[in-house]
Amino acid sequence: MSWSCPLCHAPLTRSGNSYCCPHRHQFDMAKEGYVNLLPVQHKRSRDPGDSAEMMQARRAFLDAGHYQPLRDAICAKLDEIKPAQLLDIGCGEGYYTHAFAEIAGHTWGLDVAKNAIRAGAKRYANVDFCVASSQRLPFEDNCMDVVVRIYAPCNPEELARVVKPGGWVITVTPGPRHLVELKGLIYDEVQLHAPHSETLPGFTLQTHDALAYPMQLSGAEAVTLLQMTPFAWRAKPDVWETLKGQEHFDCQTDFAIHAWQRSED
């Protein structure tokens, strides 16, 4: 199996350092080994995704092991399934993806951020990386045994299209008290995350697991964590300064891990 053309959905065939479809749409491989399958007309901004600075900060935070229990929990589920083909949507620089590749037969990593994909491709040779939109997955129908989606948005119709009958989607979303201490610095009244309410047409929710544990962070790590959250833009300058000056910042995680199975049809 290989990529499919993001413009016409025909299969892409590799020739040298390029991928081409029967309609002569061509996509060149970067020197780092990834392929950019995000046409200009599919971009929502000039340079979508996180900046290089944000990507590097996130990498340092993840490499410190703060989210390793989450990675281990997903790997345990994958070890039960033993997928031959796995896609990680919103893979970033590949912190989770390369661990999945130790279990899956063939692992693909997709993200809209070129900086993150470039870094991942340079670091992890056991993953096929691409820059692409999660709204238009560049893969053929019924080709994936497992799709992993950690926080990343995706078109549910695309999930139903690319996952094999009987295959799986594993999603991670924030639990009610995820990063509640961090939110307490930003909001006058902290609202807990709403209970899970997602549905995936064509899939049945088979398991729902909660994972929660405390983290003790340095001030710099707390700043990086805030940068990684969707509520960073609400943080006033004094919040950033307060975090930077902290010797220790205690913060709890609360993850909801869902395993969905596609119906056999």
Rank of each mutant, 00 (worst) to 15 (best):
M1F: 06
C5W: 01
H9T: 13
A10Q: 15
T13S: 07
S15W: 06
S15A: 13
S18A: 14
P22D: 14
H25S: 08
P39N: 10
V40D: 14
H42N: 08
H42F: 05
D47A: 13
E53W: 05
M54N: 11
M55W: 00
R58A: 10
D63Q: 14
A64S: 15
H66I: 11
Q68N: 09
D72C: 04
A73F: 02
D79P: 06
P83A: 02
Q85A: 15
L87A: 04
E93M: 07
E93P: 12
G94N: 03
G94W: 01
Y95W: 13
T97L: 06
H106M: 09
W108L: 12
A116N: 03
R118C: 15
A119L: 10
A125I: 04
V131M: 04
V131W: 01
L137E: 06
P138N: 00
V147W: 03
E157I: 05
E157T: 13
G167T: 11
I170R: 02
V172Y: 01
T173E: 14
L182A: 08
L192Q: 11
H196V: 14
S197Q: 13
D209L: 02
A210N: 09
Y213T: 11
M215N: 13
S218H: 01
E221D: 15
V223T: 11
T224P: 11
T229I: 01
A232C: 13
K236D: 12
V239A: 04
E241A: 15
K244H: 10
K244M: 12
A259E: 08
Q261C: 08
